[in-house]
Simulated assay, not measured.
Amino acid sequence: MLRNLNMEVFYPYPPQRVWQVLTNRQALAVWLMENDFEPRLGHKFRFLHSTLPGLEGNIDCEVIELDEPRRLAFTWQDSMMCQPSIVTWTIQPVVGGTKLLLEHKGLIQKAIKLNEPMQLSQPWQGKFMPESKAGTQTLVPSNCSTVFSSIPVGRYEALDSIVLSYFLNSGWNYSLHKKLPQILVTHCTS
């Protein structure tokens, strides 16, 4: 299944001001996460995620599209993801302000048999998987691969990144509706 998120938010500020809070490292840190972002095509950067209690980690990103002040896109890959997703921001001037469009897409989440090989990033191997009562789990340290043994055949489960799920389910909504408007008022002048 392809997981996509599309959001549209109106801000009563000019497009350049909205662009500033999307592309300024300090502003991003206030409304989203600490980072080493630079608005430069090909720039690799990290968001330092610590929003979820007990879960800290990095989200590795790369700027793949930059059209100031209209469009910004970057890859998004946390340590549980074997494939990056894509975050795209589109800014549209409208009467009375700016319409900001967010599209976060491209993560394929498949239901898989638990007794067959499945993909997880290595740093997460074994961290969130309880021991099976039916037997033990065998973790094979290879690039993005984990093997479970002695789990009943026919049991299926969809696995996903905890950090990505947080953002797709409520994190983006909270950031765009609660935190970003506050930084628009205080951060930039136009």
Rank of each mutant, 00 (worst) to 15 (best):
T90K: 08
M81S: 04
Q26T: 15
L159W: 15
T88Q: 13
V94Y: 14
F47D: 11
E103H: 08
T90P: 05
S190G: 05
V140S: 10
F74D: 03
F45W: 14
H49E: 02
I108K: 08
L168D: 01
M80F: 11
E68N: 02
S50P: 02
Q16P: 08
S175P: 02
Y156I: 03
Q16I: 12
V185F: 08
L159V: 10
S79P: 10
M33R: 11
F10G: 00
D160K: 02
E62T: 02
D67K: 02
L5G: 12
S85W: 00
T146H: 05
S170F: 03
N58I: 08
F74T: 06
F128E: 07
P12M: 06
D78A: 02
F10V: 00
K99D: 12
V140E: 11
V147R: 14
T51N: 09
L159T: 05
E62N: 01
M129Y: 06
V30T: 14
P130S: 11
E34R: 11
T189M: 09
Q122K: 04
S85R: 00
T189W: 14
Q137K: 07
S85G: 01
Q16K: 09
V21D: 13
L184H: 03
G135V: 03
H187L: 10
P152N: 06
S150A: 15
V140D: 09
M80W: 05
S132K: 13
P152H: 07
P53R: 05
D160M: 02
W89H: 12
F167M: 05
N143W: 12
R25N: 07
K105G: 09
D60S: 05
S145F: 00
M80R: 05
T88E: 15
N58R: 13
N143M: 06
K127G: 08
H104T: 00
K127E: 15
V94E: 11
L164R: 08
S85A: 00
P123G: 13
T146R: 04
T138Y: 11
K113M: 01
T23G: 09
L168F: 02
I59N: 06
C82S: 07
I91R: 09
Q20I: 10
Q119T: 07
P69V: 12
T88M: 06
Q77Y: 01
P117C: 01
D67Q: 01
K127L: 15
E65I: 13
T90F: 13
L32S: 03
T51D: 11
